[in-house]
Computed example of a mutant assay.
Amino acid sequence: MTEKMTPILKWQYEQLLKEMLLLQNHLTDQDCPCETESEMCVRKHLLIIEAYAQETIPLETEQEFQTKLQQLAVEAKEKRNAEERMLRGEDLGLTKDDSEWVRRWRKEFEPRSLSKPEGT
C-alpha cells in the first residue's frame, strides 16, 4: 500500500507499532523484570496501544482500518483488564502466547504505516 496519508496519521501508526513491538518484547523476554520498581510494563504498553488505537480512529480515512483500530482498542482493553487482575493477584495475566496476539495486530498495520505522508 503506497497511497498518501496525512503526516499525523503516519505518525500515529508509527507510535502504535512501536508500542506493539515493545509489548511483544516484554511478553517474550522472560529476563525483563517487568513488575519491579512499580513499572508494570505489560499494562503500560497495553494502555498506550488502546489509547493510540482510539486516537487514530477519527484520523483514519479508510473504513477497513477504522474497524480494525476499533477492534484493537477493545481487545487491548480486555487484555489490560486481565493484566490488572493479575497485578492485584486475582488472575494469571498475559502469557507468552499473547505475544502472538500483538504480533498479528502489528502485521495488520505495518503495510498501512508504509504509506507516504502527503507532501512527499
Rank of each mutant, 00 (worst) to 15 (best):
I49P: 12
M40G: 05
W101L: 08
P7D: 07
R104Q: 08
P58C: 05
K68R: 10
K44Y: 11
K68S: 07
S115I: 08
Q54M: 06
E3W: 12
S115L: 12
M86C: 07
R80N: 00
L72I: 00
A82L: 11
R80C: 00
R88H: 09
T36C: 06
K18Q: 08
D97F: 03
K10Q: 01
N81P: 14
E39A: 00
L23Q: 15
D98A: 11
C41I: 09
V74E: 09
K18E: 09
K77Q: 00
A76I: 04
S38T: 01
E90C: 09
P111E: 08
E50G: 05
G93K: 01
V102D: 12
E19P: 09
E39G: 01
A76P: 15
A73R: 00
L69W: 03
R103T: 14
E60Q: 07
Q66W: 09
Q70S: 15
E110I: 02
E19G: 13
P117R: 00
E39V: 01
Q63D: 14
Q71S: 08
M1Y: 05
E84C: 05
P117S: 01
F109Y: 08
G119K: 06
S113Y: 07
D29T: 04
L92T: 09
R43N: 10
R88I: 03
E108D: 11
L27R: 02
K96R: 13
D31N: 10
K68C: 11
K79L: 03
E55C: 14
R80Q: 01
E90S: 12
